[in-house]
């Protein structure tokens, strides 16, 4: 395990120290060591909170900032934050207009958010949630409620954050964030495993010369282990289930290609060239494309594709200004 760490059991706390020192304009400490907040949130807006396991950087901390999230609850590597942490995040975000907690569909997160929400109620903090379920590989459309949340969460945060920033009500922020993530269909492909520091050995394994289509962000098994083929064939294998998930034809879309950690960004661009061709052939117009490491899995090799169907309501929110480590646009 070739890692720049101290005690493998303390990587999360040690990293938080670095974030706080590096970006004081984006991060402030709170009463909970596992919660950071944006120090300049307007107090009269709906608070945007998210949280989840660590190891997905720039998620989740990278999405704290202006026009984005106000507070983030930070879990251990690949493990939900505690209910205490979510509660403190609700308290640390502006909450006079209520709090929108926008997170991904994982059992631990569901339980901890549920408990935190109950505790917040006792403090008269109104919390509503949107649970991202954009991974088409994790369950068929009929069982959408079982799907994992993956890189579509980035879109959910951006849309929810922009709606809150312009002064939308809690119900409106929730409606738009829900609409945003419902408009997203995502899929991942994994080319290698990753190693949780405290564990010291790879989480699972992918044989050299193979890839796993539909892999989850923690290495959850996908729908198929297949021989590693060309970027062109991988693009097809990723586009097929995504395009089958929603009726994208004739619409405008936003495309997000995220690396899983160790795959060079050059390869994401090679992949995208083929995806773009495929979208064109399917009469789908691309409004914007973002390619980079937006939602990773430690040093896993691979990539995710997220396609988001846009309309006149979502587009301006997606393009609205934001300032955070992962997304800054003017």
């Amino acid at each position: 395990m070739q890692r720049i760490i101290n005690d493998p059991d303390n990587v999360v706390d040690d990293a938080i120290k670095g974030y706080l020192r590096a970006s004081p304009s984006l991060f402030a400490a709170t009463d909970h060591p596992r919660v950071l907040k944006y120090p300049s949130s307007a107090s009269d807006k709906v608070g945007i909170v998210t949280g989840g396991g660590s190891g997905h950087e720039p998620a989740f901390l990278g999405y704290i900032g202006e026009g984005m999230c106000d507070a983030v609850a930070i879990g251990e590597i690949f493990s939900s934050p505690t209910a205490d942490a979510f509660l403190e995040a609700f308290r640390s975000a502006p909450h006079g207009q209520g709090v929108a907690c926008l997170y991904g569909n994982y059992a631990g997160d569901n339980m901890n958010v549920k408990m935190a929400k109950q505790m917040a109620e006792m403090e008269d903090i109104e919390v509503k949630t949107v649970i991202a379920r954009d991974d088409v590989a994790s369950a068929p459309p009929a069982e959408r409620d079982k799907r994992r949340g993956v890189a579509g969460e980035v879109m959910m945060w951006k849309i929810g954050g922009a709606a809150a920033a312009r002064g939308d009500s809690l119900d409106e922020v929730i409606r738009l964030a829900q609409k945003a993530v419902d408009a997203c269909s995502s899929i991942g492909v994994g080319l290698s495993s990753c190693t949780i520091p405290a564990n010291g050995k790879p989480n699972f394994s992918i044989e050299p010369g193979h890839m796993e289509l539909g892999i989850g962000h923690h290495g959850e098994p996908g729908i198929e282990v297949a021989p590693l083929t060309s970027a062109e064939a991988i693009a097809t294998a990723m586009c097929d289930p995504v395009l089958a998930d929603q009726d994208f034809a004739g619409s405008e879309v936003a495309v997000l290609i995220s690396g899983l950690g160790a795959t060079p960004v050059m390869e994401l661009n090679i992949l995208y060239a083929h995806i773009a061709e495929r979208l064109e052939a399917a009469d789908i117009r691309v409004h914007r494309t973002d390619i980079g490491n937006y939602f990773t899995s430690l040093e896993m090799m691979g990539a995710t594709l997220t396609l988001m169907k846009l309309d006149d309501e979502l587009k301006p929110l997606l393009d609205a200004p934001a300032r955070s480590l992962a997304i800054t646009q003017c």
């Binding site: 879990g75 251990e76 505690t82 209910a83 942490a85 901890n112």
Partner: peptide, 12 residues
């Protein structure tokens, strides 16, 4: 457990 381990096991 609830306050320190998170995940599924903390709440369960």
């Amino acid at each position: 457990l609830m306050g320190s381990i998170g995940g599924s096991m903390g709440p369960l």
